[in-house]
Nucleic acid binder design. Sequence first.
DNA 1: TTGACTTATCGTATATCTACGATAAGCGAT
DNA 2: ATCGCTTATCGTAGATATACGATAAGTCAA
Lengths: 121, 121
Amino acid sequence: MATTKHALFPEEQVSLAAFAGALAHPARIAIISLLQERKEVCCGDIVKELPLAQATVSQHLKALDKAGLLHLRECGPKVCYSLNCEAIRSFCHSFQCTLGTDQADHSAELEPAADCANRRS
Amino acid sequence: MATTKHALFPEEQVSLAAFAGALAHPARIAIISLLQERKEVCCGDIVKELPLAQATVSQHLKALDKAGLLHLRECGPKVCYSLNCEAIRSFCHSFQCTLGTDQADHSAELEPAADCANRRS
DNA sequence: TTGACTTATCGTATATCTACGATAAGCGAT
DNA sequence: ATCGCTTATCGTAGATATACGATAAGTCAA
């Protein structure tokens, strides 16, 4: 009864959610950090760094690749991964636009609604 | 055998993944967009806008709240939600730092790695 | 070809997510 | 107290995600 319903939402929202979903796991954040500091890394090197089995790392890499965040290059028996910086930048941009933090003008509108009384988290 | 393993990763990566996870659904992106254009919205208004049942919307709101992205205010029988802009801004900042797009100077470094040969998606 | 190495995929078990109806719980008015 | 309204929670079903071992598939060297 819980079929996904993603199709009922605007395409841009689905796209942004997919981007967020690709980053919604510590291992994938770690992979991206690793790819950022060492320009290009092969799967085995990532396996050495993370507390996960090779199959799991490969699965996470596939998820990142599916989201379009990676470039991959086969060199010999290895596969070298690097960040698709352009795609990431593009996603970040629409991300910030949607989140409304593109320009941080917390100068005028610090009060969200002046007619608000009690407020709790 | 697939217990979560999040605890084996650095706290910041877990935190960022949680933030991304909160945004990893089109409905939650839509809710944030809605909260951005109308400063403050109650649950029922969101239900009217989205193709989801009230229980589902409430669940999504809970997820966003749990991630710390919302302020909520009870007024009468209603509950009014607004964005926790400060938290969102803070998350976005560390987000961009991690993704390496904190300053989008795609002026000099358009070439990710000049020593790469063939490259395919 | 065989062997050593690297990575992707398969199969599988468990956990979490998604979605809903039903119901509970709260407020305000009558 | 009762009714109408609003929202949260419960219970549940199905779909996805997570993690691993085992295995397949590929490259390079001998």
